[in-house]
């Protein structure tokens, strides 16, 4: 993983949290993103999750993610406008109905960044092993979380390689972007597998598992705060102002 993605893995606030607490936060956040639809309640959760993400990643990394999300939102706005012009009955929206999906995305992205950038794969694997998940689920799940920074690094490598070419641009979507990205993905999968094998991680491992440690005060406090935030967001959703979509 590129060092600039992390501040100092062992000293950040998020790194001090147990992997189970971070997983629980991710699941709660993703369910809240599906259930809640008010921009105010989602905004509250996004603000809190941003604070947590800033405790795991550099502000520049979080800013890059937000800029990318904003670019996606503008692209989506363009697409929605075109569809609205072609089929007016299909698209009934106002600014809130476009902001809400992106608040949902930011909430999930913040929590996922916190989990993937501040949790060593060793710790995640150990926790999944301690809760007695079978090996064929532990390895892919640990890798799934760990692969996100590696994938970002692969994208950066392809961009750097494109800059070295005479035009300084990506030449063609197929040979210039899609095929190199797939090759890098497969090589990264091989590298991760080799690292896992060297660390003794195997689907056939039947050794003695360490007992599951209790959650620390910090974990319990963060989970209690998350619960309070979810209750506040639900209250805002049901008792706060109502934002109805308008015709385009």
């Amino acid at each position: 993983m590129r060092a600039s993605f992390l501040i100092k893995a062992d000293t950040t606030f998020a790194a001090g949290l147990d992997a189970r607490a971070k997983l629980l936060l991710c699941v709660a956040g993703s369910l809240a993103a599906v259930i809640l639809s008010s921009p105010l309640s989602l905004g509250l959760l996004v603000a809190l999750s941003t604070a947590l993400a800033l405790g795991a990643a550099r502000p520049a990394t979080v800013l890059k993610v937000y800029l990318f999300s904003a670019a996606m939102m503008l692209f989506a706005l363009g697409c929605a406008a075109i569809i609205g012009l072609a089929v007016p009955d299909l698209m009934r929206w106002n600014v809130f109905s476009l902001i809400v999906p992106f608040l949902r995305m930011l909430l999930s992205v913040n929590l996922l960044l916190t989990l993937s950038l501040s949790t060593p794969v060793r710790e995640l694997f150990a926790r999944l092993q301690q809760i007695r998940l079978p090996g064929w689920l532990q390895i892919p799940l640990s890798v799934a979380v760990r692969f996100i920074p590696t994938f970002l690094e692969d994208c950066a490598q392809i961009r750097d390689a494109a800059r070295l070419r005479p035009g300084g641009k990506i030449t063609g979507m197929w040979r210039g972007l899609a095929v190199p990205l797939l090759f890098r993905m497969l090589y990264s999968a091989d590298d991760l597998a080799m690292a896992a094998e060297l660390k003794g991680i195997s689907a056939a491992y039947r050794g003695q598992r360490a007992p599951l440690p209790a959650l620390k005060t910090r974990d319990r406090s963060v989970l209690a705060l998350a619960f309070a935030a979810l209750c506040a967001a639900a209250a805002l959703q049901y008792f706060g102002p109502n934002f109805r979509p308008l015709p385009m």
Binding site: I139, P140, V143, A144, A193, A196, E197, I201, S202
Partner: peptide
């Protein structure tokens, strides 16, 4: 292990 990593 390699196959599980690739699946992940």
């Amino acid at each position: 292990t390699r196959e599980l990593v690739t699946i992940g």
